[in-house]
Nucleic acid binder design. Structure first.
Lengths: 386, 386
DNA sequence: TTAGTTTGTCTATCCAATAAACTAAGTTTT
DNA sequence: AAAACTTAGTTTATTGGATAGACAAACTAA
């Protein structure tokens, strides 16, 4: 209820975070360099660095180059001081990864899912997680958290409110997992996870404001503003797949009409392709490769509608980049041209000026790695508040 | 470049802001009450309050009620310690107001604009502002700032990049005004100003997350998230009037097709009404009053398209409220029914659950008062950083 | 009157950041 | 190689916040 007040501990937390941050960004770094870069006094830096060393987060790695004086002692972040687990829960698969605190990848596992029953899925999740935990080297902070990306609507407390493709409703996955493992668990939408993954390790590295458009069966979107995930006001993210782009178009299961994902998703592509005798995206990609004109035309259509929705997104959020991810990113070659032209035609010039249109670099691993990043950033946030 | 580091001055600024905030919210308040509410030590509160009193921001207003002990000395914020000017610059009018630091209204002026030439408008603005300044009582902080709402796209430095209805391009209004008056000037879009006005003094009082939809000649939107204005990443706000709701609809001057404002603005209403012999909104409102069925049908159509766009907004931002303002709010009686039904039909249930659909309470004064609030919050922000 | 309560101030203490002096350990100049 | 200079990092004394607890002032209730 009361706003947290300021005291000396707050100062120390702030400055410790600044020091740690600068080591994370610029390692290897000496105390003197940190002092210069942050503006903190040398003595202050020395004292805070000592705390970080005592806390097993920073290591002295030996002398550095001198430029005419005493050699500096270089400092590095100990990435392996803790490990996080990232999980991408799909409709018919689970992908999991063990990451160190800098996102370095350890063991990676995939398994297919025969059922989407919540209890069954929970057991499968535990199997994967157990194996990943077992593969982690022992370290001061152990497993610092588990992050999970799910294909559905997630509320602020980590409950999956609604996941049509899993046929889930109100599954309190975060509570279940954290009860079972006794460590912090973060659950979020697959698109949010993907956005974070691409922002940290993929096409969006170091871009502050981006929109990740996950084009799979449906369309999900993840929004990163000022380098952090934007969650809707009640904790769930904007479902831009359900922006209506054809006010009187096809009715959607969400109740609205003409939703974007009715025109630009894999599902919509497959519906059109069915009469031509194609059954999945892989077949269509193959046919496109072979230059089948009717298939190329199909992809152009998807590209156009992707562009229509992306132009809307650009006009509303004016991001630095839009990244197209998930399964449809494989069709880059066949959709990109039409997509770019449509966006250029339709987006407002002011907003268009600086926006980059990119495709996911991490491919199928965006969401999984993003989920791991959620767990890692949870760990750092907890550090800051203690 | 370097993140501001933490020091004792920062603590003091934080805690002073907390104390001031609690007086602003709960006055009259005693030192003891502030200590209890904020969690700050009594001595700390005493010391900070003394600084505020020395700074002419707070006043001891005499003894309060005792509950069996020494009577408390009650404290109040001195609203008249400074004054701000709020301006709503319209296409054919200027509205201006003098406000105290709590938004209390002093002198109010309106004048009509015969030309939209930037130099001419600047002179007219100065005339109004001069009169308002002259009407301000003398006070410790004087005129703390000028806020202006304009019907166009404004960048982070307060330049009007593009205002089609004023026929303006790249007018550095903020610089011009602040050079002329030597006090801080804030320029923003009319819809952003309106959003702030309604959030502080109108239908959105104390609502943390709201979208203000300004329906006039065009459609503008102002977004308030966590009680403060959300600016797009480059400093200008989302132009949701140019969300495309009919992918292959009418071409819009912005380059896109089927923009929302082509279907739900005053302009679009008038275009349809022209063949029926109506020339402005006032005539149409009169005809609706008389029950003319073809006019009622027109308004229902506007209501439906407003609902279509608002459903999109609700799905993306999941706000606590949507407020319809500007000229079309006068047509509430004729559009509200269809609008509500359309939103209920189209918005995703989860998001619909808590959203309120409201109409502006401040009428034509939303933007003007919001502009004043921009200036006031500028003053408080400067206080916090010194 | 007397006891108890509440308000607000005063005092001693704590703690983080800092400047400046200082030690340590190098490089460059002569 | 000695002297002069540079740079890194630590030590010391000081500053300026917040705080707990003691305290005086001012009130109520019995």
């Amino acid at each position: 209820m009361t706003t947290p007040t300021g005291d000396q501990a707050l100062i120390k937390r702030i400055n410790t975070a600044i020091v740690l941050e600068s080591i994370l960004r610029g390692a290897p770094l000496s105390r003197a360099q940190i002092s210069e870069r942050t503006g903190l006094n040398k003595a202050t830096v020395s004292s805070l660095v000592q705390d970080l060393i005592d806390g097993s987060l920073v290591l002295e790695t030996g002398p550095g180059e001198s430029s005419g004086g005493r050699k500096p002692v270089m400092l590095e972040f100990i990435a392996s001081a803790g490990h996080a687990i990232g999980i991408d829960l799909g409709v018919n698969y689970i992908r999991g990864v063990l990451m160190d605190l800098q996102g370095g990848i350890g063991k990676e596992l995939t398994s297919s899912l025969r059922s989407t029953d919540p209890d069954f899925v929970f057991k499968e999740l535990c199997t994967i997680i157990d194996k990943l935990i077992a593969s982690a080297p022992s370290c001061p902070y152990g497993i610092v958290g588990i992050g999970v990306g799910v294909p559905g609507l997630v509320d602020g407390s980590g409950s999956v409110l609604f996941a049509p493709n899993l046929k889930w409703r109100d599954v309190p996955l975060e509570r279940q997992l954290s009860d079972h493992y006794g460590i912090p668990v973060t659950i979020d939408n697959e698109a949010n996870a993907g956005a974070l993954g691409e922002q940290k390790h993929g096409a969006g590295r170091s871009i502050a404001n981006l929109v990740y458009v996950s084009v799979g069966i449906g369309i999900g979107t993840g929004l990163i503003l000022h380098k952090s995930l934007y969650k809707g006001t009640s904790g769930f993210s904007g479902e831009m797949g359900h922006l209506s782009v054809e006010a009187h178009g096809k009715p959607c299961s969400c109740g609205n009409r003409g939703c974007w994902e009715m025109y630009a998703s894999e599902q919509s592509l497959l519906e059109k392709a069915e009469t031509m005798g194609y059954r999945d995206l892989e077949q269509l990609l193959l046919a496109a490769e072979q230059g089948k004109p009717e298939v190329l035309e199909l992809f152009r259509g998807i590209g156009e509608y992707l562009g229509i929705g992306i132009a809307n997104i650009v006009n509303v959020f004016n991001p630095d980049a839009v990244i197209i991810g998930n399964r449809m990113s494989q069709a880059r070659e066949w959709v990109e041209g039409e997509l770019r032209q449509t966006v250029i035609k339709r987006a407002i010039g002011f907003h268009l000026r600086n926006v980059q249109l990119l495709f996911a670099e991490l491919g199928e691993r965006s969401a999984m790695m993003g989920a791991g990043e959620m767990a890692i950033s949870g760990f750092f946030n907890r550090l800051k508040s203690t």
